[in-house]
């Protein structure tokens, strides 16, 4: 069975190490914060200028001056820091953020990512995505393996305008976990009950399948 959004988020959260500073994009990546394993502390960076983002506020705690990068009201954890956008992106572009998780329209076998612009549709902007993919040490892309028409999102070459080049090393989809290296996708795990054949059928770019591909543990 293909994973649900929550299950993809659960698998993402297993990548976190104790002490990681993590930036989570909007959507499935944000859900990963709900599944951080017991005994692991991560600190969430929100690129509008908050390190140590906490939960959503109670009605009494709502403060218009306290928002996250998705412009939602939030709280700060004890030990958080707040700073300017330049400082925030110094952390990101300077490689100080350990982990970035973000969504994408397409990823290709050279680690290129397209996530912000579909020609012919209104372009709203890249926000901080280009900075994040250029700066983070470790980037995980979360997305469905194929679009709703069944077209693969894992390509030999991205067709859409890029967000960043040669920067994606790991992808977690509803079907599989893959590493990107040496111009190919390398299958490392498959979703429970999903066949290698289905993954092969839905991966348009070069795919390397090892002899044994374990099922994900969620």
């Amino acid at each position: 069975m293909a994973l649900t959004r929550e299950q993809i988020a659960m698998r993402v959260a297993k990548e976190f190490k104790d002490g990681d500073y993590v930036n989570l994009g909007i959507g499935i990546p944000t859900l990963a914060a709900n599944y951080v394993p017991e005994g692991i502390d991560v600190m969430l960076q929100s690129e509008n200028g908050l390190l140590g983002m906490g939960r959503y506020p109670t009605e009494a705690e709502v403060d218009a001056d306290m928002i996250n990068a998705g412009k939602e009201t939030v709280t700060a954890i004890t030990g958080a820091s707040i700073f300017s956008s330049a400082e925030s992106f110094a952390m990101i572009r300077g490689g100080h953020v350990d982990f970035t998780v973000l969504g994408a329209f397409e990823v290709d076998a050279n680690g290129n990512i397209a996530s912000w612009m579909i020609p012919g549709k209104l372009v709203k902007g890249m926000g901080g995505a280009m900075d994040l993919v250029a700066g983070a040490k470790n980037i995980i892309v979360t997305m469905t393996h194929a679009d709703k028409h069944g077209n693969s999102k894992l390509l030999a070459d991205c067709t859409l305008p890029l967000t960043g080049v040669n920067c994606i090393t790991r992808i977690i989809t509803d079907l599989a976990v893959l590493e990107v290296r040496d111009g190919a996708f390398h299958l490392t795990e498959r979703a429970p009950g999903v066949s290698i054949e289905e993954i092969q059928a839905k991966t348009a770019g070069p795919l390397v399948v090892p002899d044994s591909v374990p099922e994900m543990v969620l």
Partner: peptide, 28 residues
């Protein structure tokens, strides 16, 4: 890009006319 925008303002205010960044390389 958001970080480039922040840095463009910071540089402008600091008398730095331009800077190099990896952000946006290979993109539109």
């Amino acid at each position: 890009p958001q970080g480039t925008l922040a840095e463009k303002m910071r540089a402008g205010g600091a008398g730095i006319p331009a800077f190099y960044t990896a952000t946006g390389y290979g993109t539109p």
